[in-house]
Nucleic acid binder design. Structure first.
Lengths: 246, 246
DNA sequence: ACAAAAGTGTTTTGAATACACCCATGT
DNA sequence: ACATGGGTGTATTCAAAACACTTTTGT
């Protein structure tokens, strides 16, 4: 049975990717003809959608991810609700909503998620989308529609907090990775440099990264050993540790 | 200008209190006449409300807190959205919604908050409410309407996580407290016992708890010194510390 | 005097940090 | 041979954890 869209609730997703020391967010193109101002508009926004009447928010989020990247089983975390009555106030945004949904839109509350994907796994699908999508480096994101800039900022804050206690950053790396890639990733996310020897010591001490019998190929320096994250070991070893109090 | 209620979005709040080694949640009575089944219903639920068309979610949450406890400036944290289309499915709950709002209700998405209040500060106001409210020990909470049990469980999980990195648990204690009260609080929240000497050592090392020149009165044992939390010192001293990685 | 909880110190173990050089590969 | 990043060890400092007895009050 076909379900109707609920015009009050939407979902928006900050999809993070990591490539060669840079943190990127996947943005989609928004193109439409603003019939009031008789102008064609083309800009970027976060991927998102209204939610169907009978659909859960998580389902809507996965639906968007699937449609955009072709992938299932992606890391997804709900982090906040953006609900200012002013957020759908700009004329251009209202015109776009009207043009794309055909529904008369008033206030929309959006539930924000962030998602972590391995940078290049989606790129095959991305190339063939009708709605074009672009990986945009986090520092190069300009003014976006609605409150999408706030959503990204706040999402990144949440991600930063989260990686302090859980090894989810690995979702951004390929299955096999070098310790240098791992360190680069943490340095970008946390925005500070780490001592290479101490970093490696810590990784080894943690006990759930296992070295493979494989090394990098075709780099013009000493090739690095590849590692993988051992999820089963992680779950076993993981012990709660309170930073504020004993 | 009077604003209408938005019948799609609500806010529910898990209000925590702590008293004499026990963690409590503030629940309100729900009484109504179920005209379909010709029965009077009286049970407990989380405090909550639909949101006005022009109101932010945070505002709705503070409105509920104020009306219930008479207090402003209460610690409040949004932690999740509960959106299962099934959550408003039970007949009795639908009858109650119909009876209290007068609006025809379909699916309601609720945004959940938890709040920390100093146990007895609200009790003056609570005694005079039309809608009766009860502090209920966390272990004694039985089946509640909608998905309110899930909301409480998940809220407590979030609170547990949060106190690992921020000293918000203090919101549950009076301004002046003994180290024993503080330890009891952490033991209840984290659900394990701590070594008293090590606990005190840690508190002193943290450097933002200051001993007052005051002691407990009229206890039939050696009276304990009172302490206060020094917010300014806390902000100064607080240094980021990553538990998962360097 | 007794009951009840407050308050205190030492030792051991392990993580965090700081720091500089040799190694393996491609060109 | 040289440029490039990979990979390694030691010493110090500090927090975490384990552990038992004396002190002060009210009754």
């Amino acid at each position: 049975m076909k379900s109707k869209l609920n015009p009050h609730i939407s979902v928006d997703i900050v999809i993070f990717g990591f490539d060669a020391k840079s943190l990127k967010v996947l943005l989609v193109e928004r193109t439409f003809h603003d019939s009031v101002r008789r102008k064609s508009i083309k800009d970027l926004k976060l991927p998102g959608s209204l939610v169907f009447e009978r659909e859960t928010l998580d389902h809507a989020a996965y639906r968007i991810l699937k449609q955009l990247t072709g992938l299932d089983q992606i890391y997804l975390d709900q982090f906040a609700v953006f609900d200012s009555p002013e957020r759908t106030k700009r004329k251009m945004d209202r015109a776009w909503l009207q043009a794309t949904t055909g529904i008369k839109i008033g206030r929309i509350i959006t539930v924000a998620y962030y998602s972590l994907i391995q940078f290049d796994r989606a790129n095959g699908q991305l190339a063939h989308l009708k709605q074009k999508a672009h990986w945009t480096e986090i520092g190069d994101i300009h003014k976006l529609p609605f409150d999408h800039n706030d959503i990204i900022d706040y999402g990144l804050e949440h991600l930063r907090e989260k990686i302090r206690s859980e090894p989810i950053a690995l979702e951004l790396l390929p299955k096999k990775f070098t310790l240098r890639q791992l360190q680069d990733l943490y340095e970008v996310l946390l925005n500070y440099d780490m001592d290479n020897r101490n970093f490696r010591k810590k990784i080894h001490r943690l006990g759930y990264f296992t070295a493979l019998n494989e090394i990098e190929k075709s780099v013009n320096h000493k090739p690095a050993r590849l590692y993988k994250f051992d999820k089963a070991k992680y779950r076993k070893i993981r012990k709660e540790s309170v930073s504020f109090l004993p």
